[in-house]
């Protein structure tokens, strides 16, 4: 029965099915847009979520699709943030060119790092990315003449977007700007993972030896994907600088590298939407729980991570898909 059905299907339809836009995706993005009207008091928080989500998306590309776990991804986020900040301090406040330039700087640095990292896998990869992140943070901390050290960078001039929309405290411009950038990058990443390159990336993650036997060069793949992921992380960092007019040393911290990993795993690795959902849950939870008591936020955070690892390995997106599948089965049985 299924064989007949499959035979009559055009093979390319099987591929198209992979990348088809699902109803849940339209609902998701509509909700993001609607949140502007639903939660007008929380626009700043929502912008932060979008930025963190974009950062987590860059890690999803690396970890979820390429299978490479990084413990130092804040290096590229921070590099983007500082580049945008320094541009603003030096008097160039045009947002879009500043954003792109920051992404390029982070991407070039990622390219250089990936030349070394392409030889490493698993634990060695984790440790070297971790060291890289620490190195950059300490560098920024010590070279305070450029980076402001512990005090960070403030007084960052930012011109109005398209010469019209000012970045104010209310966060209206930041919201739409962040949403547009995140959505555009999301579309590009979504396209990429549904292209032959995306398939090759998944193949690398699934079985590197077999991928090599198909003629996929792991070195080139690692370099390409690490560079792209770094550039996107840099864009996210630059967005943070531009929407808050401030750079703190914290953008390079280990806590941020660990945090983005946690967001991604919380939302679901390798699902794209998990990055955004995880960022939202993480930041909202932090807002609520640290309002109760900032110290114990760490306790709840730790507990959430332990629970996710032990009981919901595929994250919230995976969990909701399992629940959905179960509901469908029930409905069909009834």
């Amino acid at each position: 029965m299924t064989m007949v059905a499959l035979r009559s299907l055009e093979p390319v339809r099987l591929l198209a099915e992979r990348s088809r836009w699902r109803a849940a995706e339209f609902v998701f993005w509509s909700f993001v847009v609607a949140s502007y009207f639903l939660f007008p008091g929380y626009l700043v928080l929502i912008s932060q979520i979008l930025i963190a989500g974009l950062f987590a998306l860059s890690l999803d590309l690396l970890l979820g699709f390429g299978g490479m776990p990084s413990l130092g991804h804040a290096a590229f986020f921070g590099l983007g943030a500082y580049t945008a900040g320094l541009l603003g301090q030096m008097g160039w406040g045009e947002p879009i060119s500043g954003l792109l330039l920051s992404g390029i700087v982070a991407g070039v640095f990622g390219l250089v790092c990936s030349l070394f990292l392409s030889r490493l896998r698993t634990t060695a990869f984790l440790m070297v990315t971790l060291t890289l992140g620490l190195l950059l943070r300490e560098f920024a901390n010590r070279w305070s003449g450029l980076t402001g050290g512990d005090d960070g960078l403030s007084d960052i001039a930012l011109w109005p977007l398209f010469g019209v929309f000012r970045f104010g405290l209310s966060g209206h411009t930041a919201f739409w700007y962040g949403l547009c950038v995140t959505f555009i990058v999301f579309l590009l990443v979504r396209r990429l993972v549904h292209s032959p390159v995306g398939l090759a990336l998944e193949a690398m993650r699934e079985n590197e030896r077999r991928a090599v036997a198909l003629g996929i060069s792991p070195r080139l793949m690692v370099i390409a994907i690490f560079t792209l992921s770094s550039a996107i992380a840099g864009l996210a960092g630059a967005l943070l600088t531009q929407t808050t007019s401030f750079v703190a040393l914290e953008v390079l911290s280990f806590e941020r590298s660990a945090g983005v990993l946690i967001m991604l795993v919380l939302g679901g690795v390798g699902t794209l939407y998990g990055a955004l959902v995880g960022a939202a849950v993480y930041l909202v939870a932090r807002d609520v729980l640290s309002a109760l008591d900032p110290v114990y936020w760490y306790f709840w955070l730790g507990l959430i991570i332990v629970m996710v690892v032990l009981f919901a390995n595929d994250g919230l997106v995976g969990l909701s898909q399992r629940l959905q599948a179960r509901a469908v089965r029930r409905w069909e049985a009834a």
Binding site: G302, I305, V306
Partner: peptide, 28 residues
């Protein structure tokens, strides 16, 4: 013991979680 074969990502995450919990408990 449950995580020996679960891959280093899960190990790293679980133990980071424990670090955060221990930080909170020590503060308390």
């Amino acid at each position: 013991r449950r995580l020996y074969s679960a891959g280093e990502l899960n190990q790293v995450l679980l133990t980071i979680g424990l670090v955060f919990i221990s930080v909170a408990i020590a503060t308390y």
